[in-house]
Amino acid sequence: MEDYIGEIIRFTDMKQHKTLNEIVFEGIRKAIIKGILPIGERINEKEYAERMNISRTPIREALNRLEKEGLVECIPHYGVIVKKITIDDAKEIYQIRKALDILATKNAMKLMTKKQFEELRNLLEETEKLNEQNEDLDVVIKLFSEFNGKIYQYSHMPRLTNMVTKLREYLMRFRDISLRGEERRKKALSEHWMIYRAMCNQDETQVNMIIKEHLSYSEKFIIKEMEKQ
């Protein structure tokens, strides 16, 4: 049996300036989302507390919050297990993402300075250059995320940013798998360029259309990957 608790301990940063409850919650949550804790794995509250050298209360609180998020479920007479993220979950997340991404992008393009537009273009050029070299895919995938992150940053909508960050995390593992395909990366990069140009032109109609198409294509890839697994 793999030492999943050991992985979570290595994954949990106890040095953060946050409450213990929050640190434990974020550590277990990230482990589930990144696939460190597999679907169906039983989370033994007592064992986790002993291995992490803390009381059972933070573990219990974390599991309660994770159950509300739909990441774990309590099975009567058995315990808490990691819940599967379903295809219906993915479809719902993408439906919400389309609305939030369009809202953030429209707000950002109205508020962005000339320098910020240049930063966004430079980011796309760097992504294109590294993608053509086809070497360090981890860096390329990170730059794809930075493009989305900058748009949300420039939108000056922190609550919206927090919402979409949590939604993206659910499917991050599958999205990263899909972007490792050369064809998918080329298309995604082309769509990012189209979003950028529509923003430069302050064209809300184009922003609507391109983002919907961009996320619909991403959704198809991720659902296909989920079906394989």
Rank of each mutant, 00 (worst) to 15 (best):
A62V: 00
L123I: 04
I223A: 06
R10M: 11
K46H: 09
T113D: 06
H192W: 03
M172R: 15
Y94M: 06
V24N: 04
V140C: 06
I195A: 01
I9K: 09
E126L: 11
L130F: 09
L120P: 04
K142R: 15
K187A: 07
Y170M: 12
I177V: 15
I211M: 05
I75T: 08
N134A: 12
A90K: 07
K187W: 13
C74A: 14
L171D: 00
Y196G: 00
F147C: 08
T105N: 08
I75C: 07
K166L: 15
K15D: 10
G181I: 15
F11I: 10
N201F: 10
G35W: 04
L171F: 06
Y94G: 02
Y170L: 13
L124E: 04
I23R: 06
D136G: 05
Q229T: 15
I210D: 01
T105I: 04
E47M: 12
N134D: 15
I102N: 08
C74Y: 14
R197C: 11
K15A: 08
F144D: 08
I102E: 02
L120I: 09
R173L: 13
R65Y: 06
R197Y: 15
T113Q: 06
R121V: 12
R184Q: 11
E47S: 11
E7C: 08
I9Q: 00
L100P: 02
N162D: 13
E41D: 02
I222T: 02
K228A: 11
K98N: 06
I54W: 02
G70N: 05
F221Y: 14
Y152C: 02
A108F: 03
V164D: 07
R159Y: 14
S190Q: 14
V140A: 03
Y4R: 01
E125A: 10
E219D: 05
I177P: 03
R65T: 03
